[in-house]
Design a protein around this nucleic acid. Structure first.
Length: 360
DNA sequence: TTGAATT
């Protein structure tokens, strides 16, 4: 079973705004009266399957005011298709969203945030399936092979999860369908330079719903990740247990919370988590970064000083599921962020009082 | 040997 798990590599491609107006703000109006969304409208790819419209809006709304946003769903089943659109009021916020949220790890996914191309029939069905690739061919080399036929939006080579070796299968998405057609004509049945076998190039099928096996695979990955936490944390984590006696009574509170003694973090909206010892420069994106990998996060908030707008050293994160919240707390409490040791617990009534009175 | 990229 394990050998059937696959992973992918992908280049992060910025589509780039298609308008070159130098005006940074406000809705742009073109000659025909239509609004120009090219600098405010973003496409977001590789969203976790279980992310809701509300979580999607919460994540991107933490950057700035949203004109509209939409998580794209299957018309029949209502299942998320794993991508969505966010149109900001201000193009500066769109730019900021790309800079701060592109590459964000959410559960098993690494999201991609880029400018949306103008919707057009000419960009649809431009995805190619390539098989028979030499196992030694890199993603970059595959792109070089195909780039003579047009602008590549994404490329991907499937690899064996365990060995990391290429499976000789990949995808190339072109900007335009006609480019994809030309690539098929030029490359299908051809041997790449130095290859012993010809490659097959054809239009890709639509991604299918997960089969039972794929669901098992997903479950395996989700479970494995839960117990290891975010990958980028592993090399620098402190053991939370070693910190209990050396770092403040709030850590003890988190232990009683975890044991189910004092679960005031619960509410209809989910499980509210208290995060203490953030730096004055902390922002919402760091909370998404920290907690997103553990499961569904519905809201994050950095508490700021009213006059300086600097973080007052703490914030809150709301997570939907208890087990994911508990795992996040167990993993992130005692985590070193920069030169600070975070204290993470379910929000308690005590902290609620302190917060209300501004005593922290 | 098939991935959620155009509302």
């Amino acid at each position: 079973m394990v050998t059937q798990i696959i992973s992918t590599m992908e280049t992060q491609v910025s589509n780039g705004p298609t308008s070159n107006s130098s005006l940074p703000n406000g809705p742009l109006i073109s000659a025909n009266g239509a609004t120009d969304d090219s600098k405010t409208n973003l496409i977001v790819n590789y969203l976790p399957q279980n992310m809701t419209q509300e979580e999607f809006k919460s994540l991107f709304g933490s950057i700035g005011e949203i004109e509209s946003c939409k998580l794209v769903r299957d018309k029949i089943t209502g299942q998320s298709l794993g991508y969505g659109f966010v149109n900001y009021v201000d193009s500066n916020d769109a730019d900021k969203a790309i800079n701060t949220l592109n590459g964000l790890k959410l559960q098993t996914k690494t999201i991609k945030v880029s400018y949306a191309r103008p919707s057009s029939a000419s960009i649809r069905d431009a995805n190619l399936y390539v098989s028979g690739l030499p196992k030694t061919m890199s993603q970059k080399e595959m792109e070089q092979l195909f780039s003579q036929y047009g602008r590549i939006i994404t490329s991907r080579i499937l690899v064996d999860q365990v060995t990391g070796v290429s499976r000789g299968v990949g995808f190339i998405r072109f900007d335009k369908r006609i480019e994809a057609e030309e690539a098929i004509k030029g490359l299908n049945g051809q041997k790449p330079l130095g290859a012993s076998e010809p490659i097959t190039v054809k239009f890709a099928n639509n991604p299918s719903q997960k089969t039972g096996q794929a669901l098992l695979t997903h479950l395996y990955q989700t479970t494995a990740r839960r117990y290891t936490g975010p990958l980028h944390h592993q090399t620098q984590r402190f053991s939370p247990l070693s910190l209990i006696s050396r770092f403040s009574p709030i850590t003890i509170d988190s232990m009683t919370s975890l044991a189910g003694v004092n679960l005031t973090g619960a509410s209809s909206a989910g499980w509210c988590i208290f995060v203490y010892n953030l730096s004055p420069e902390a922002d919402e994106s760091v909370l998404w970064q920290l907690f997103g990998p553990f499961g569904a996060v519905t809201n994050v908030k950095v508490i700021r000083d009213f006059t300086t707008n600097k973080c007052k050293g703490f914030g809150f994160v709301t997570m939907t599921n208890y087990d994911e919240a508990a795992m996040a707390i167990a993993s992130l409490n005692g985590y070193r962020l920069g030169d600070r040791i975070l204290q993470v617990s379910f929000k308690t009534s005590e902290e609620f009082v302190k917060t209300k009175h501004g005593a922290i």
